[in-house]
């Protein structure tokens, strides 16, 4: 549970880990029935569309107004998103 939580970037406390263990065990036990289906040789269906993918023309188009992306962030500095120190002694883990 702790390993999956770390991969999911979640930090549940001990009590929550225990309740998640019980809830997810039941769900994983149920969904495991996909392993019992006789599907050998069946191509996985990732996406239902049968239309060819269209690449967008490589040309400039409209963009969000300057500063609107930074305005969505919890902390910003002018038109920039402010984040904690990533490189150096204390960061680098993300």
């Amino acid at each position: 549970m702790r390993k999956v939580a770390r991969l999911a970037r979640l930090d549940p406390d001990d009590a929550r880990v225990e309740s998640l263990r019980a809830e997810l065990s039941a769900v994983i036990g149920y969904v495991a029935r996909v392993r019992a289906v006789d599907a050998a040789g069946v191509e996985p269906l990732v996406h239902v569309s049968d239309e060819p993918a269209h690449l967008a023309e490589d040309a400039p188009g409209p963009t969000l107004p300057e500063g609107s992306a930074a305005a969505m962030a919890p902390e910003s500095f002018g038109p920039y998103v402010k984040v904690p120190k990533v490189l150096g002694d204390e960061g680098g883990g993300a």
Binding site: V31, V34, R35, A39, V42, P44
Partner: peptide, 15 residues
């Protein structure tokens, strides 16, 4: 493979 890929195979069969 056991879960995700098999789920997608079931999806193909269902379709």
């Amino acid at each position: 493979d056991a879960y995700y890929a098999n789920a997608l195979r079931v999806r193909r069969l269902l379709k």
